[in-house]
Structure formats: structure tokens, C-alpha cells
Amino acid sequence: MHCHRHILDRSPRWIVLLVGIWIACCTELQAQAVIQGRVTLPKARPSVVVNQRYEIVVQGGVLAVHPPVAVVYLEGKFPASPSQPLARMEQKGLLFHPAILPVRAGTRVEFPNLDNTYHNIFSYSAPKRFDLGRYRPDDRPIPSQVFDVPGLVTLRCDIHEHMRALILVLDTPYFVVTDTDGRFRLEGLPAGRYLLKAWVDSRTTREHGVELTADNVTTIDFP
């Protein structure tokens, strides 16, 4: 004990501070829970064929493929985020990336155009109705919108009718997108009783009550 105090006494103050933060973080992590599992996903949708009837000089064919995934999130009362979160929904290769983007309510989502052509993103969905107009890849600032009402927002492009994506606005900071096999792992969860939900599509949201305890990994499958 004496030796330990001696080392601390001789160390610069910032090392002491870092060690303190590290210990605090470890303690915090150890107190957090993990949920993992698998969501049974629907069958993949057929590829979307791009309408090129009248724009005869076009950039080759595009078969837009969006394998199904689900969004798993923890529903409950959580403190507000201290800063406004930022997320990105890109347009690349005449497709949206990612095809589904879960965000916490209040998130600003940027829509960078990474194609060598105009895009015109719009939504008629009730939680967020907007139309960004036509914009180039080099337009700055990157067009963005704040999504502050929970719900499902369908994005489309007014120029490329095959383009479609979803933004799932959630009232929780704890969410994750499954992989294409439906597997997920949700980490850093606070202990307590919650409802775990799996959003599969606009008509299908499965749910499961969970009681999370610190340092525990819970496995939940959504058949």
C-alpha cells in the first residue's frame, strides 16, 4: 500500500487522471447489459428494375438489391441526448445507403449525393414531410433534415423512381440494425425492465419484455 501510494505520488497528474477515467469506464461497462439474438426476417424482395425508357443516354443498368434487415431497439424512458446526433443517408450508384436508417428523435440526417447526377430526395410521410429539390454532389452545405417526431419516414427520389429508403425515428438511444441473417447484438444497455422491439417492416414489429441486470448477456430470438 505504501508502495502504491508512492508510485501515484511520483506520477504526473494527467496519468492519475487517465487511470481514474479508465477505472470509471470499466466500472460503467461492467454495470451495463447486453442483449443478443436473432430476428427471423421476411423473404428478400425482388430486385428493382430502373426505369430508363426516355433517358436513352444513361449510365448502364442498375439492379437495386436491398436484402431485408430488421431494427432492434430497447423501449423505455431514457435521458435526452446532451447534443444533437448526426447521421448520414447517402445516395450512391442510384441507391440509398443504408436502405434503412434508425435514428433517435432529434437527429439531423445529412443526405450526401455521391453520384454524378442530380438527386431529389423527398418524403410525404407524416412524421417528416420535406422535399430537398435537385442538388449536386458538390452542393454545400450537404442538404439535411432534423427528424424529431418518432415514426417511419419513407424516402424517395423524384428523379429516380426506383430509389426508396426508410428512416425509423425512435424515442430511444439504444438500437441496432441486424445483419442480413437477422443476428443482432445490442450493447451498453442500462439495467432495468424494458420492452425489446424488433421492427421487421412497416406492418410487423415484434416485442419481448426484458429485465436487464448488470454484467449480464441476455439472448432473445424473435421467431
Binding site: 428494375v49 426505369n51 425508357r53 448502364g60 443498368g61 439492379l63
Partner: peptide, 11 residues
């Protein structure tokens, strides 16, 4: 609208 690979398109 029909697409076969990246080179063939019919409508």
C-alpha cells in the same frame, strides 16, 4: 421494364 445483367434492358 426488364433488365438482364447490366447490359440488356427492355421496355
Amino acid at each position: 421494364d426488364a433488365q438482364a445483367g447490366r447490359r440488356l434492358y427492355a421496355f
